[in-house]
Each structure stands twice: as C-alpha cells, then as structure tokens.
C-alpha cells in the first residue's frame, strides 16, 4: 500500500492531472443520482432555457436539465465504454496470444478472419449491423466488441510473437505445460506494457465510437442520457452562438486526454524506460 502511494506521488504532473480527472469522473458516474439536481428524464421547463441559478447549464431541446443529463451521461457512456473495451480485450488478447503461441494453421485462420473484418471500415460495418439488427443494447455492445477486438488481436499477436520465441517459453513447453498456463504465466506478464497502452487508446476510441454512433442515432437510445446524442440534440444552438453543445463534447475530450496521460506514464514505468539527463 505504501509502495503504491509512493509510486503515485512520484508520477509526473500530467499523470497526476489525469488521475484526478478520472477520479472525479468516476465519482460523478457512480454517485450520479445523489449529485444530479434533477432526474435524468424529467422535463422541467421550456426547451433551450439559458443558464440560470435554477438550471446551471440551461435546459436541452426537450426542456430537461442539462447538468443532470451530463452527470447521468457520464455513467452511461463511461460504463458502456468500459464494458465494451474490457470485452474486446478479453476476446482480442486471448485469440491474439493463442495465435502467437501456437502458430501454424490456427494463426493463419485467426489472422485471415481478422483481416476480413479490418478491410471493412469500422463505422460502416457498425452502421450496417445495427441497421439490420436494431439498436438494442446487446447488439450495440456486441458489434463494437467485435470490431475492436480485431484491433486488439493485431497488437497482442505482434507483441506476443516476440515473447513466444523466447527460450523460457520453450522451457515451459518442454516441461509439458498446457496452453492456458503458457499464455497466463509466460506470455501475458511480458506484454502488459503494450497491452496497457492499447487499453488506454482503445478505451478512448470506443468512447468516441459510441458517441459517434449516438450522434448518428444508432447508439444509446433516448431518453437515456449520453454525451454523443446530447451533442446532436443541441447542435442547432451553435448557430445562435451558444456553447451548450460543446459542453458534452468537452467532457468527452477531457476524459480522453486524462486517460492518455495516465497510460503514457504507466507505459513509461512498465517498459523500464529511464529519463536520461
């Protein structure tokens, strides 16, 4: 515990900033019902009311409290992005490490399947699937997980390849270890650095992807609050010189930057890079 604290205090300023931001986002997401002044779906007044003491950020196109929706949106968007990224990583790293460790036809098969998915632009693929199957939550999650796990697969396979040729992996094979043990104990601990970096990046991409889909109307469905759709719903205000639609967009951008700051620092630490000067 002490060591962790020491580690945290030795972090550079950018990483500390990132951690504080992420912490605030998490608190907001977890305790949304306690913090938000009004309910997520409550219609409280006229549309597009200006900022006032009653509605700190004004109201949206249906007269709901902007601040409350922003707070609930944190919960929905971040939660969903986390679930999707975690699932994509589970699938992508399992298949990626298996392909690297076994090689041969299994590697060929998996890699070619991934190639096929990668050859279709992600957004178009998602739009296609969601238009066919509808926009229910499981379909939304499943589609993004599949798209993103192919990207994870490539990164994991490439880094696992470098580890799989090491003599210590051969030692484990000669000992008679089974595949799960080799993946978990020999390969995984040695590719955590690139995995972490990829996780941070992937989380941001998923986050933006969900927002993009919501913006296009195929993501999280109303009346559930979501930052992407909030941008779209209030987009017209931009023409009237009102910054309201930029607030949810800014919330997305801030989190993305914060996550990357933290990941950069962790990557720097785990890769054993040292500052020379």
């Amino acid at each position: 515990m002490q060591k962790t604290l020491k580690n945290l205090s030795s972090a550079p300023l950018s990483a500390k900033f990132g951690m504080v931001v992420i912490f605030i986002y998490l608190v907001v997401a977890i305790f949304a019902p306690l913090i938000a002044p009004y309910g997520e779906r409550e219609i409280l007044g006229k549309a597009y009311e200006l900022m006032s003491s009653e509605h700190l950020l004004g109201t949206d196109n249906l007269g709901r409290d902007m601040l409350s929706r922003l707070i609930y949106g944190a919960r929905n968007t971040i939660g969903l992005a986390l679930i999707i990224t975690a699932l994509a990583f589970l699938i992508g790293s399992l298949t990626g490490m298996t392909a690297a460790a076994l090689g041969g036809w299994i590697d060929q098969l998996l890699s070619r399947i991934v190639d096929i998915f990668m050859s279709i632009p992600a957004l178009i693929f998602a739009l296609l699937i969601l238009s066919i199957l509808g926009t229910a939550m499981p379909y939304l999650i499943g589609t993004i997980v599949i798209v993103d796990s192919t990207r994870v697969f490539r990164v994991v396979r490439a880094s696992a390849m470098n580890v799989a040729v090491m003599d210590y992996v051969e030692v484990a094979r000669l000992r008679g270890e089974k595949l799960p043990w080799i993946l978990r104990k020999e390969i995984l601990p040695n590719i955590t650095a690139p995995l972490l970096a990829e996780f941070g990046l992937r989380f941001c991409f998923v986050f933006l992807f969900i927002s993009a889909l919501s913006f296009l109307g195929l993501g999280i469905q109303p009346p559930t609050a979501d930052w992407g759709s909030m941008v779209r719903d209030n987009a017209t205000l931009i023409s009237y010189n009102d910054i309201t639609p930029l607030i949810p967009a800014g919330a997305i951008a801030l989190l993305t930057v914060a996550v990357n700051f933290v990941v950069d620092w962790m990557l720097h630490k785990s890769s054993g890079l040292k500052d020379v000067s």
């Binding site: 003599d167 210590y168 601990p189 040695n190």
Partner: peptide
C-alpha cells in the same frame, strides 16, 4: 537472459 522469464 532469455531462458528465464523476467517477470517471475
């Protein structure tokens, strides 16, 4: 160097 897993 490469016969021992550096993380074990």
């Amino acid at each position: 160097d490469i016969a021992l897993n550096p993380r074990q």
